[in-house]
């Protein structure tokens, strides 16, 4: 199929991924659908085991040999990435789709200079000679605001601070002007003042290039500051998607509402109660998920129907939620579930 004019840049449809573990086959990603447009920032949020990183790695077909993609389509610019052979995927990775990982120290090669690593994708995908690749690398390092960029091409990663390494990673990712950048917890390992600089830079540079950005994070503050749209994942499924504003103003899925209620904030009043609302229970065990909705055991609204898996349905224009429970109409925030206060869970 060829791309229709209005099709999103990336359209993931019903993606399922499972892993062989010593406890049997585990479905890490379960019929996930999401899309992102050029110039847009989509945040995928979720806790550990929610499948957010596996989804990202699957888009680039980078999951390890214990995992396999069981079904679905990953349409990028109209072509299904799941139908490509490895050589074609190698040509796409780092060129049209780039990825930024959490740990810059383990993603950079410690025995190669920064110049070599930032220049490599240009040489590989653009066939440039090293001289040109180095010139472009220096230009990229300047764009990510590394002082004395051309002088630092010969430095090794250990000469760089954590923030500078992540800047170098961003420079590498931007090298071939990718249409899509996937950043998996890009600032989790960094200090908060540096985190803010890096995310602001990433956002600015992707916007300039009209690229799409998928930001994978567990930090609801980061999502609020940088995302246009959000997909919330739980136990391998997308449970809710909405624009960032709509999601924070009125979370529809009880899991989203619970998450929002349980984070301490920097504004608002603490005096009233020092107890935070909590989501009772433990994160789901992917090897032993319940039949129906995976959140049901922790959900304050669970009822009989939750024994059936809820489909992701459009509840209003642009908003999707996978939940059988329908809050009484008209009540926006008021209808969001009140989570169990002060639960001592066992």
């Amino acid at each position: 199929m060829t791309a229709a004019g209005s099709a999103p840049l990336l359209d993931v449809q019903d993606l399922s991924v499972s892993f062989r573990t010593d406890r049997g086959l585990v479905r890490a990603v379960d019929r996930v659908s999401l899309h992102v447009e050029s110039g847009e920032t989509l945040a995928i949020v979720g806790e550990s085991g929610s499948g957010k990183s596996v989804t990202a790695l699957s888009i680039l077909r980078l999951i390890d040999t214990a995992g396999s993609i069981d079904g679905g389509r990953i349409l990028f610019d109209g072509e299904d990435l799941l139908r490509h052979d490895e050589a074609t995927m190698r040509a796409i990775r780092g060129d049209r789709i780039a990825m930024i990982f959490q740990e810059p120290m383990s993603s950079l090669n410690p025995v190669l200079t920064i110049g070599k690593q930032v220049g490599e994708p240009i040489r590989l995908h653009r066939g440039s000679v090293w001289k040109q690749a180095y010139e472009r690398a220096a230009e990229l390092l300047r764009r990510v605001r590394i002082p004395d960029a051309s002088g630092r091409l010969k430095d090794y990663p250990h000469h760089f601070s954590g923030g500078m390494r992540q800047r170098a990673m961003i420079a590498m990712a931007l090298a071939c002007r990718p249409r899509l950048i996937i950043a998996d917890e890009p600032t989790t390992a960094l200090d908060v003042t540096v985190q803010a600089q890096i995310l602001a830079l990433l956002k600015e540079l992707t916007r300039e290039a009209n690229s799409a950005l998928i930001l994978i994070t567990h930090d609801l503050g980061v999502v609020a500051r940088y995302a246009d749209r959000v997909a919330v994942m739980y136990a391998g499924r997308v449970v809710e998607t909405a624009t960032a504003r709509a999601l924070y103003a009125d979370p529809r899925h009880p899991y989203t509402a619970g998450l929002m209620a349980s984070i301490p904030t920097l504004d608002g009043d603490v005096e009233g109660s020092r107890r935070l609302a909590t989501i009772p229970g433990q994160p789901p065990d992917l090897a032993a998920l319940p039949e129906g909705c995976a959140f049901a055991p922790r959900c304050p609204h669970a009822f009989e129907r939750c024994g059936q898996p809820p489909p992701l349905e459009e509840t209003e224009a642009g908003r999707f939620s996978a939940c059988h429970f329908r809050p009484p109409s008209g009540g926006a925030q008021g209808a969001s579930p009140r989570m169990e206060q002060n639960a001592v869970t066992r």
Binding site: A196, Q197, A224
Partner: peptide, 27 residues
């Protein structure tokens, strides 16, 4: 002040009105 400015607030409304006032450099 810089530390407080750097922390993103979990509220897109507030965030959109907040000036991006970040300090440069690293520790």
């Amino acid at each position: 002040q810089a530390l407080l400015n750097a922390v993103p607030l979990p509220d897109p409304e507030l965030e959109s009105r907040r000036p991006e006032n970040l300090i440069a450099g690293e520790v």
